[in-house]
């Protein structure tokens, strides 16, 4: 896939955590097309989180290029990378990572605070946060509740709403269903896919659960993406 047409592209990327000689990540070529849904399967310790950190620009590759939406992250300063992440990427975490003391509304609106362009795409942020909550199956009164008081399933929906608000081109979900039971998993994925499609967002989900494969356009094994580790213990 041509990096010019892909939403995400990693070429000849090498990364080694400082002070951790036992682990390195080496990716020759990995790309995702716009609006594609991709499941990246890998065991624990296979480098999934490191790969996500590279894509989000919180760490920078020691070699190669990571391109998101046509922009090489290495060409951006640290501050611009933070802004770029807020503008381009919606994130859903395994542990939801909501601010437990803040309201559901504030949690959903938080990324817009750091992303002016994404905020500009939302005419009425409060109403949009409310609409996303309703669409994702949260009760009416949940919008004003403290995030920490919600159930696990509800918190994950809030995390999804936070990733979706402002329609970022790329949504990255890191094991978002691992804390949910099977029935809730299926419902959550359906809602997430529907919203991602509505926004024409690309969805990259990282998981170790191969049963999710049927939901995605493409399934990629982590071991297929990464080269045999050079220098790894």
């Amino acid at each position: 896939m041509d990096s010019d047409t892909s939403i995400l592209s990693l070429r000849d990327v090498r990364y080694r955590w400082p002070g951790r000689a036992s682990f390195a990540l080496d990716i020759a070529d990995f790309a995702i097309a716009p609006s594609e849904t991709v499941l990246l399967l890998g065991e624990s310790g296979s480098g999934k989180s490191t790969l996500l950190s590279l894509i989000c620009g919180t760490i920078t590759a020691q070699a190669g290029s990571v391109t998101v939406g046509g922009t090489d992250l290495a060409s951006l300063s640290a501050g611009k990378r933070d802004r770029f992440r807020a503008e381009q990427i919606g994130l859903i975490f395994q542990q939801f990572n909501l601010l437990p003391y803040a309201s559901v509304r504030d949690n959903i609106l938080l990324p817009l605070r750091f992303a002016p362009q994404r905020r500009a795409r939302v005419a009425a942020p409060q109403e949009e946060a409310h609409r996303l909550c309703t669409t994702l199956g949260l009760p009416e009164e949940a919008i004003a509740a403290q995030a920490g008081t919600l159930s696990v399933g509800q918190q994950q929906r809030v995390a999804a709403a936070r990733a979706l608000i402002g329609a970022p081109p790329l949504i990255i979900a890191d094991e978002p269903t691992s804390a949910l039971d099977a029935a809730t998993q299926a419902t959550f994925l359906e809602l997430l896919f529907a919203q991602a499609r509505a926004n024409r967002s690309t969805l990259l989900m990282v998981s170790h659960d191969a049963r999710l494969a049927a939901h995605f356009d493409r399934v990629v094994q982590m071991s297929d993406v990464t080269s045999p580790l050079q220098g790894a213990a």
Binding site: T58, Q95, L99, P111, F114, A115
Partner: peptide
Amino acid sequence: REMAIFRAMGAR
């Protein structure tokens, strides 16, 4: 974790 959440949301 709280600080990481802010960072993930784009906070410098």
